[in-house]
Structure formats: C-alpha cells, structure tokens
C-alpha cells in the first residue's frame, strides 16, 4: 500500500520524532508513506468566521498539491493539520461560491480544486485500512506491562463533523496501544483541552492545564501519555517544567507520540525515536520494562 503524506511544519522541526516514527512504523506495516513533493503550512487553525475565505487558501493549496500528484486522498499524523485541512475541505464542499472565489484567487495554479480529495488521519488508516489484528501480528517487541494514558485533546474529536471517533469517549488510540501489547488506563480528561496556543503568552495557564491533565493520567497509574498533536506534546511535556515549579504535588510523566510506541513495538531503529527532543525523558519508564 502507498499513501500520500502531509507532514506539516512542526513535524519537520520540533517534532521530528513524530515524523520519523510515522514513516518508520508505517514501513514496518507494509505501507509506503510518500511525502508530498510540495506542501505548505496548513495555517494551523481553521478560521471560524463565515466570511474568512483568506485563511482557506493555505489548506486548499495543499489539496491541490495532492491532486497534482494524482492522488485522491492523503494522510497526516498531526491532529492539528488534520483538523484544519479537513475543515477547510468540508467548508468548500458545502459552499460552491466560496470554492469558486478561492479557485479564482488561486488562478495561477494549474489545477482547480473541486472538493475531490479526502483528508485522513493516520489513526483512521491504522484502524480502517491496516487493521489492529494485522498490527498485532507484526509486533516484535510487545509493550507488555506499559500503562498508557491516551490523550486526544480537541482536534481529533471536535467538531463532530471531523471527529475520527466518539466525541466524548474516543477509544481508537486505546485499541491501538492494546494491539501493541500495552495496557490503556482510565483517563477521564483525555479530551480536555491543553490550552493550545496560550503557551506562547501564558505559560502558567498551560502549566495549570498540564498539572490537571497529567494529574488525571497519574491517578490512573499511567507510565506514559501518548498524543497525536505536536502542540499538545509541547504543552504536556515541555510545560512540565513550569508545572513542577508551581505545583508541589506535581508528578512528571513522559509524553510520547503514538507512532513512537508503534516504532518500539514494531522493532524500528531506535534512532527514529529522537528522545533528545523530549523534555521529560521517556527512557527510564521504557527501560524499566526492557523496551529500549
């Protein structure tokens, strides 16, 4: 199987651990992930104003690039890119006037966008196209004994029109980590917002969110937390520094991308894990179970 892949800006810089582990683990599953030759920033957030066509241009340009490579679907592992690209796609599919204005604006493009590209998240591919049973059959190093809190945040489940799973109680990541041999833990705050971009101007606000969310994972006796968004990862991992300073009862927890757990379980080279990019080193928790 071959799959067009949109990595997004952060996966090529601060979240190379996400990018490299995506490509490596998919190869182990027999899926050739082909990065688009050309792509641009998705814009990161979907403009919510009904008349905001300008911020649809960046995502729609990417959908044009997919078409230009003769594909009718593509995958991204970043939850934020997924959300933004998919919502822009839905918005233009529902509004022919808006789509024609956007095509007019992008008149220097050789290809017109007609709403004919599907935006998929990697977790959907794993569930619907690869299948958890096949994943289990390819596991080389089962994640036995590893207790995992699966964090979805906002973008994989809200709004409902782009949700990859149940809005209030998604379980696709729990099924994935179970397929890898790990044990998912009870984690009621798994869809609670991490505070997102407030990390730029208000790190203490994020420390408060991180303290609550990771505290909840800790209460479930999690060894690690897995995520699918580089902004969630930054907030939940790097902002533990502030959380530790402010909250005396805060317990640090390693935060990983679900693709890193896949890479470990499927026997990929440890170099793709790029643990040097983490704030809280996941290695002690994994080494304790003989996983790294």
């Amino acid at each position: 199987m071959k799959l067009s892949y949109y990595p997004g800006c952060t996966l090529k810089s601060h979240a190379r651990n996400f990018d490299e582990s995506t490509v490596a683990s998919m190869a182990r599953l027999g899926v050739e992930v082909k990065e688009l030759d050309r792509w641009n920033c998705c814009g990161t957030v979907h403009g919510l104003a009904s008349d905001d066509l300008m911020h649809r241009m960046a995502p729609i340009t990417n959908l044009i690039r997919v078409k230009e490579e003769s594909a009718n679907a593509f995958m991204t592992s970043c939850a934020m890119c997924y959300n933004t690209l998919k919502r822009a796609n839905q918005a233009v599919r529902a509004d022919a006037d808006a789509l024609s204005t956007i095509n007019d604006f992008l008149s220097l493009e050789n290809t017109k966008y007609t709403g004919d590209v599907e935006v998929l998240h990697l977790l959907e591919i794993l569930r619907d196209q690869v299948g958890f049973e096949k994943i289990t059959s390819l596991v080389k190093r089962p994640l036995k004994g590893l207790r995992v809190a699966c964090y979805y945040g906002c973008l994989l489940v809200r709004p409902e029109s782009v949700a990859i799973d149940d809005v209030e109680n998604p379980t696709v990541m729990e099924k994935l980590v179970t397929a890898l041999g790990a044990t998912p833990v009870r984690f009621p705050l798994k869809t609670e917002c991490c505070g997102a971009y407030h990390t730029v101007g208000q790190p203490e606000l994020i420390a408060d969110r991180t303290n609550r969310i990771l505290g909840n994972a800790y209460d479930g006796a999690a060894d690690v937390v897995v995520v699918s968004c580089p902004l969630c990862a930054y907030n939940l991992d790097h902002r533990q520094q502030e959380a530790r300073r402010i909250y005396s009862d805060f317990h640090p927890l390693p935060v990983l991308y679900f693709t890193q757990l896949m890479s470990i379980a499927l026997g990929c080279d440890n170099a793709v894990l790029c643990f040097d990019l983490h704030h809280v080193d996941p290695q002690p928790a994994l080494a304790g179970l003989g996983l790294v």
Binding site: G8, C9, T10, S13, H14, A15, C41, G43, T44, V45, G47, H55, C78, M80, A196, Y197, H198, T199, V200, G201, P230, L231, Y234
Partner: peptide, 13 residues
C-alpha cells in the same frame, strides 16, 4: 516554541 504554537497564536490573537 514550535511553529504550531507561534502560528496559531498569531492567527488567533
């Protein structure tokens, strides 16, 4: 700060 944080905060604020 990762690009995802900077771009989204500037977009929103």
């Amino acid at each position: 700060l990762p690009p995802i944080a900077l771009i989204s905060s500037m977009r929103k604020l």
